[in-house]
Amino acid sequence: MNTNESAATSYTTLRGDSVHELEIKRSRFITYLYRVETEAEARNRIAGLRKTHFDARHHCTAFILGPDRMTQRSNDDGEPSGTAGIPMLDALAKRDLPDQSHLSDTLAVVVRYFGGIKLGAGGLVRAYSEAVSSGLDHASLLRRQRLRIFTLPASHALAARYENELRAAGYQIEPTHWEADAALVHIGIPDTPEAAEELRVHVAALTAGAGELATATTRWVDLI
């Protein structure tokens, strides 16, 4: 594996942005969830909400980025230390998902309008954790998967047949590269040793042992 590639080959993220509101002891907790891929993008989203909700007392934040979740940040934004950002981050990081995946590339911003009743440290921890968890309950999620793209050289006469038969077998067929005297069929598979071995066996049968697979690149895709 390329040393620049993540150890994870799949993870879960948001299908789209969402917003959900809770009222706890007269305080309004408005949770915004965004799909983001960079820290700069996350901070731009946060800055935008500060302008939209300029009259709110707090704009607490947490985000997790990357397939391996190497970037994790949180901010209490004026709430007592440890009562907002960290509970929000925990709600993202420890989210139970049915496929035992993990959540990433996700930003949570909880905008709080103070209702006049103090919640205490424990109450704030529960409120911010619940705000993010409830927001995720109402959000739509999807799985991302890293594909490894293999190339299969073929004559012009055989390339179309290889494409059709591989596609019929359930493989992801990327655009074929046509050269003057041959073609390169591109095949995308889940980036696992098992999937690679299965492809090699299939290609060997398809080409009567003449096909020689080579690795081209990898890319991340959303699974619909």
Rank of each mutant, 00 (worst) to 15 (best):
R200E: 15
Y11M: 14
T12Q: 07
A154H: 00
T9D: 04
E179W: 07
G82N: 04
L22Y: 06
N75A: 09
S133C: 05
D181N: 10
S140I: 06
Y113C: 04
L152W: 03
V36D: 11
H186A: 15
T31S: 08
R143T: 14
H58W: 13
R73W: 02
L147F: 09
A47F: 09
L124C: 06
V185L: 01
I86K: 05
I173G: 02
R112N: 03
A180K: 13
A62K: 03
R126N: 05
R43F: 11
R219M: 12
T12M: 07
V109H: 04
S101A: 08
M1G: 12
R143A: 13
D68F: 05
R43L: 00
L158D: 09
R161F: 01
R146V: 00
A157L: 06
L89V: 05
I224E: 11
H53N: 00
Q145P: 12
V125I: 07
H177S: 15
L65C: 03
L33H: 06
T9F: 10
T192S: 05
H20R: 10
Y34G: 10
A196G: 11
R144P: 13
R112E: 08
L89A: 01
N75R: 09
E198P: 05
A56S: 00
D68Y: 05
L89F: 09
F114D: 05
A42W: 01
S140W: 11
Y162H: 03
A160G: 08
G120F: 12
F29K: 02
R161G: 00
V132C: 04
R50N: 08
A91C: 07
S133W: 00
F63W: 04
I173F: 02
L33E: 11
A127M: 09
Q145F: 05
H177I: 15
E41S: 11
A121E: 13
A204S: 10
T218K: 07
F54R: 02
A154P: 08
G78H: 13
K94S: 13
P67Y: 11
M88Q: 02
